[in-house]
C-alpha cells in the first residue's frame, strides 16, 4: 500500500505539469498510466508532430515537450506506475482507496484525473464472436513467444508490430500474415524481409484480406478471410494475433460515481474539483463552459487543482501563495537553494 498526498491518473503533459504544481506547494504525487511510457497522446499519437502553441516555446514536438516536462519535475522525484490502469476508486474514511489493474493499492486524500480521452487499449476485431476467444486463441499482444511454438498462427495488421511478430514467429511457427491492403505501413525494411520469407516459403502473406469469420468451440480451429471483391478463403489456425494500434477508452473512470458529460467530466472552474470531494479532473478529460482542449489550458487547470488538493491534504495549514522567483521555501523544494 502506498500513501501519498495526490494520486495523478495519466502521465500526459498535463499530468506531468501538475506534479510540478503540487511539488512547489509541498505535496507529494504518484502517477499511474496505462501506457508503457510517459507522455500520453504526445508520445503515443504524435511524438514527431510539431506543436506551436505552448507558451514561450515557439515550436516543440510531443517528444521534446514530454522530455522538458520530465526535466522540470525532476526535483520532486515522482514515482511513475506505468502499464497500470486505475481500476477501482472507493472512499476510505477521509481518503480515497485506489486499486490498479496490477492490484497495487494507493491511499490518498486527493485524486487528479488527467486522463485525456481515456486509457490507451488495443483495438480489437469487430467480428461478433471474437471476444469469446480472447486470451484463449486471440491475442492483441505477445507475452511469451514460446506459447506459439510449432503452432499455426494468423497475424493481422500492416504496421511494425504485425510485421515484426510475423518475421519472428515464422522461425518456429506456421505463420500467415493478413493485411487489408497490399502496402504495409511498417518499416520498409521489415516489409522486405517478410516478402523475402514468403518467397522462401517460410511465411504466407494474404493481402488485401480482412477477417471474415471464426470457427471453433472453445478454441479456434479455422478462420475465413475475405477480400474486397468478396472472395473468401479458409485458413486452419490455432491462434490469431491482431495488431491494429491503440484506441482510447474511458474505461473504469465511468464507474467511479463521477458526473459525466459524453466522455468528459464536468468540474467547477474554481479548483477543478468534480462532484466528488477530493477528486479533480484537468486537461482534455474535464469540461466546463468555455473549455478549450489545449495543453496550455491543462497547465492552468492543474495549477488551480493543485491548490485545491492542498486544502484537503493539509486541512490544518494555511495555504500561502508564493512565487518561484522569490520564495525560499519553494526554491528549496526545487533544489535550487541550499537550506540553512
Amino acid at each position: 500500500m502506498i500513501k501519498t498526498d495526490v494520486l495523478v491518473v495519466g502521465a500526459g503533459p498535463v499530468g506531468l505539469f501538475v506534479v510540478h504544481q503540487l511539488g512547489i506547494i509541498g505535496l507529494k504525487a504518484e502517477v499511474v498510466d496505462n501506457l508503457d511510457k510517459i507522455g500520453g497522446q504526445c508520445i503515443e499519437l504524435y511524438p514527431d508532430k510539431p506543436i506551436y502553441d505552448i507558451p514561450a516555446l515557439p515550436v516543440c514536438t510531443g517528444e521534446s515537450l514530454t522530455n522538458s516536462l520530465l526535466e522540470q519535475i525532476k526535483p520532486f522525484k515522482p514515482n511513475f506506475h506505468l502499464n497500470e490502469r486505475v481500476q477501482e476508486v472507493t472512499q476510505d474514511n477521509n481518503d480515497w482507496k485506489i486499486v490498479t489493474s496490477k492490484n497495487k493499492v494507493f491511499i490518498a486524500p486527493n485524486i487528479i484525473i488527467a486522463g485525456g480521452v481515456g486509457s490507451f487499449e488495443p483495438r480489437k476485431f469487430g467480428i461478433e464472436n471474437a471476444e469469446k476467444f480472447e486470451n484463449e486463441s486471440i491475442f492483441y499482444s505477445v507475452k511469451n513467444k514460446n506459447d506459439f511454438k510449432n503452432k499455426k498462427v494468423c497475424i493481422f495488421g500492416g504496421g511494425d508490430s504485425a510485421l515484426d511478430w510475423a518475421i519472428e514467429l515464422s522461425k518456429f511457427s506456421k505463420v500467415v500474415l493478413v493485411h487489408r491492403r497490399n502496402e504495409f505501413r511498417g518499416a520498409e525494411h521489415s516489409a522486405e524481409i517478410a516478402k523475402k520469407l514468403e518467397k522462401e516459403g517460410k511465411l504466407k502473406i494474404k493481402t488485401p484480406y480482412q477477417l471474415n469469420s471464426i470457427e471453433g468451440e472453445k478454441k479456434i480451429n479455422a478462420i475465413t478471410i475475405k477480400n474486397e471483391i468478396g472472395e473468401i478463403e479458409k485458413i486452419e489456425t490455432d491462434y490469431v494475433l491482431g495488431f491494429f494500434g491503440l484506441i482510447m477508452k474511458l474505461g473504469p473512470i465511468a464507474e467511479w460515481g463521477l458526473n459525466l458529460e459524453k466522455k468528459t467530466i464536468p468540474v467547477n472552474t474554481k479548483d477543478f474539483q468534480t462532484n466528488k470531494k477530493g477528486i479533480f479532473a484537468i486537461g482534455d478529460i474535464c469540461t466546463y463552459p468555455g473549455k478549450l482542449k489545449l495543453i496550455l489550458s491543462g497547465f492552468h487547470e492543474g495549477a488551480l487543482a493543485a491548490r485545491g488538493c492542498f486544502k484537503i491534504a493539509r486541512p490544518n495549514e494555511t495555504y500561502r501563495f508564493e512565487y518561484t522567483t522569490t520564495s525560499k521555501t519553494v526554491q528549496e523544494r526545487l533544489g535550487v537553494k541550499e537550506s540553512d
Binding site: 469487430g126 500492416g158 504496421g159 493485411h179 487489408r180 491492403r181 502496402e183 494500434g245
Partner: peptide, 13 residues
C-alpha cells in the same frame, strides 16, 4: 490517412 485507416474499425474500400 491510408496508414491510419489500417487501424480503423472495419475499413473497406
Amino acid at each position: 490517412e491510408e496508414d491510419m485507416l489500417d487501424t480503423a474499425f472495419e475499413p473497406n474500400k
